[in-house]
Amino acid sequence: MTAVFDPFFVTIAVSTVLLVGLSKAGLLGSLGMVGVPLLTFIMPARDAAGMMLPVLLAMDAIAVWSYRRDVDWHILKIMLPGAMVGTLIGWGLWAVVSDAMVLLFVGIITLLFILDAILPLRKRLEGLPPSRPWGRFWGTFAGFTSFVSHTGAPPFQIYVLPQRLPPAVFAGTAAWFFAIVNTSKLIPYYFLGQLNPANLTLSAMLAPVGVVGVLAGVYLVRRISAKYFYRIAYWLVFLLALKLVWDGVTGLLG
Rank of each mutant, 00 (worst) to 15 (best):
128 L>C: 12
130 P>L: 10
131 S>M: 04
132 R>I: 15
133 P>E: 01
133 P>F: 05
133 P>A: 08
136 R>M: 13
136 R>C: 14
138 W>V: 03
139 G>D: 00
140 T>K: 09
141 F>Q: 06
142 A>G: 02
143 G>N: 03
143 G>Q: 05
143 G>S: 08
145 T>S: 09
147 F>D: 07
147 F>H: 07
149 S>Y: 02
150 H>Q: 14
151 T>Y: 09
152 G>S: 12
153 A>G: 07
154 P>V: 05
157 Q>E: 03
159 Y>S: 15
159 Y>C: 10
159 Y>G: 13
160 V>E: 02
160 V>M: 01
162 P>H: 00
164 R>W: 11
165 L>S: 04
167 P>H: 12
167 P>G: 10
168 A>L: 01
168 A>R: 00
169 V>Y: 12
169 V>P: 06
169 V>Q: 13
170 F>W: 12
170 F>M: 15
171 A>T: 04
173 T>A: 12
176 W>K: 06
177 F>V: 11
178 F>Q: 09
178 F>A: 08
179 A>M: 09
179 A>F: 09
182 N>Q: 09
183 T>S: 13
186 L>N: 06
187 I>M: 14
187 I>P: 09
188 P>G: 06
189 Y>Q: 04
189 Y>T: 12
190 Y>Q: 13
190 Y>F: 15
190 Y>M: 15
191 F>D: 09
194 Q>N: 07
194 Q>A: 07
195 L>S: 06
196 N>R: 05
196 N>Q: 00
197 P>I: 11
198 A>M: 13
198 A>I: 15
199 N>P: 00
199 N>I: 03
200 L>H: 09
201 T>P: 15
201 T>C: 12
202 L>K: 03
203 S>H: 00
203 S>N: 01
203 S>Y: 01
204 A>D: 10
204 A>I: 09
205 M>Q: 02
207 A>I: 08
208 P>H: 08
208 P>K: 08
209 V>S: 08
210 G>K: 04
211 V>Y: 05
212 V>P: 03
212 V>T: 07
213 G>H: 04
216 A>W: 11
216 A>N: 07
216 A>M: 15
219 Y>T: 06
220 L>D: 03
221 V>H: 04
222 R>G: 08
223 R>K: 14
224 I>H: 07
224 I>D: 12
229 F>E: 08
229 F>C: 04
230 Y>L: 04
230 Y>S: 01
